[in-house]
Computed example of a mutant assay.
Amino acid sequence: MYKKQLKRLLLVVTAVLLISCDQNDDTTVLDESLSKILTEIVVQSNLADRTKKAGNLTNFKDLGELPLQSGRWFKKNKIFRTAHLDNVDKKGKKFLESLGETVLIDLRSDEEIDSNIDFSTVLPKNITRVHLPIPISNALSNGEIIKNVLGIGVKENENYIQEQREIQYKGFVTNTELFEHYKKITKYLLGDKKVILQGEMGKDRIGFLTALLYSSLNAYDKYVIDDYIHANTTLKEVFKDYKDNEVPEIVEMAKNELQAAPDFNKLSEEEIDKKIQPLVTSLETSLSVKKEDINLALALIIKEYGSYDVYLKLAFGISQKELEEKLSIKKQG
């Protein structure tokens, strides 16, 4: 349905511009306008097409088919991103097998991974898992969120989750302890095998890395942001499940914490429900990605390092030129 609507739109736009060409001697501007519109239609179509739907794969996307300001395109069928594959089903495995020799880079910390999982049986044989963790701060654990949002033993802070997200994104940029892992990731990204970047949901750590790759290759800012926030669409059902199932569990935990805290144990049930409401609101909106977060990280790179090229050489061990040669192509029209 989505593709049909785009095709109809393309036909209408083309017709309008052709009519305009007949009425305007200066076709240069019209040609440029048509090119921009066609590119926009292709990108928006690709945004949906690059999301792979097979079995229970979640937020699985091909990073390719994004236009760059140089006229080149990000290479498709080379780098993918995904939420965790810990319980991938048969249809999902069949799709993974179709990729051929592939390296799965798991960016999760040990604490995020079920220690009972045997990845040699979970993943198909063509997938080689490499563990290069980019840890998520303990400050975003449920216990810390409850304590800080509700003010149990500390100053109450309704904006705690967003403030910690901003700290996390800044850390993706400036935490030099991550640079060695970034350099190892780069070697795989530029190697001969396909690569899958895996996170818990595949939206924050991987969202940062993806946006950095695109921006370093001079992708159009709009498309970088569109791709980043597209996770809110691909993870819609995951967010709903979290809201319906996990949030009530965290709320119950919070009530128990309040009832055990000396400053709050005399509150009535109605007063507890009222006090917990900011926590509920924070939790229900905490999972969605926000363009402000990725803009903050990308701006910080320029502020602290002067350019993407300088940052790439320092943190990833590669130049922008090398990145372009390896990960972009001149698309045949």
Rank of each mutant, 00 (worst) to 15 (best):
Y2A: 04
Q5W: 08
K7Q: 15
K7L: 12
L11E: 15
L17T: 04
L18Y: 10
I19N: 03
D22L: 12
Q23T: 12
E32Q: 13
S33M: 08
S33F: 04
I37F: 14
T39W: 02
T39M: 12
S45E: 10
A48P: 01
R50E: 00
T51K: 05
L63P: 12
L66Q: 09
L68V: 09
G71T: 04
K75Y: 09
N77G: 11
K78V: 10
T82Q: 00
A83T: 07
N87M: 10
G92K: 08
S98Q: 02
E101W: 01
S109N: 11
D110I: 05
D114S: 13
D118I: 10
V122K: 09
V122Q: 08
K125A: 13
N126H: 01
N126K: 01
T128W: 00
R129A: 06
P133N: 01
I136H: 04
S141M: 08
G143A: 07
G143P: 05
G143Y: 03
I146A: 02
K147Y: 06
L150M: 06
G153Y: 06
E166H: 13
I167L: 12
T176A: 13
K184G: 03
I185F: 06
G191H: 03
L197G: 04
E200D: 10
G202M: 01
F208Y: 15
Y220F: 15
Y220H: 14
Y228P: 04
I229L: 05
A231Q: 05
N232G: 02
D241V: 13
D241A: 14
V247I: 15
E249W: 00
Q259L: 12
A260G: 11
A261F: 14
P278R: 09
L283V: 13
S286G: 15
L296K: 10
L296Y: 15
A297C: 08
I302A: 01
K303E: 15
Y308I: 08
V310H: 11
K313V: 03
A315E: 02
F316E: 03
S319P: 09
K331V: 11
